[in-house]
Amino acid sequence: MYVRSRRRPMGSAMSPLLARSLFVALYVLYPAGCILQLGPDAGDTSPIASIVGLLMVAASFLAFAVLAGSSFQRQAQEPDSKLDERELAQRNRAAYRAFAVFAGLVALGLLYMSLRADFADRILLWAPTEQAHWNALFWGAIMLGLSLPAAFLAWENEPPLED
């Protein structure tokens, strides 16, 4: 998802370091916030943990929103005709890596659910049961799927040279 602004059609210029920090914040804060809010011990902990969890999720959405207008997201999401050959080559590499990571995570998730079903009588493993759990997983997968190619680009890109 790339949000184009009229003022900056090429995406907001962001240093790779800032973009990397925002991606790390997104990928750490969202799952941590969801665990604090909805995890297995969510009901037992104090309401402060729940509020902190909510704030962490909100911060991760904010990071996602800032990144949605960045030049990295532009490179990841623009049609081919709007990118040059170097941008396309980088984008193709990033998309391939993102697909591999996403598919790997889906496979791990399926493995976890399968193990949980197999050993349900011996080990008690957490699983999503409520609507809120599935909702958190759904939005996490959406954000990850939409941002992962741009994250790989942020790690590959070097800061532009000064003239």
Partner: peptide, 12 residues
């Protein structure tokens, strides 16, 4: 017809 950053990548 390329992005200015691409020239930087080439020069580097």
């Amino acid at each position: 017809g390329v992005n200015p950053q691409t020239i930087g990548y080439l020069e580097r």
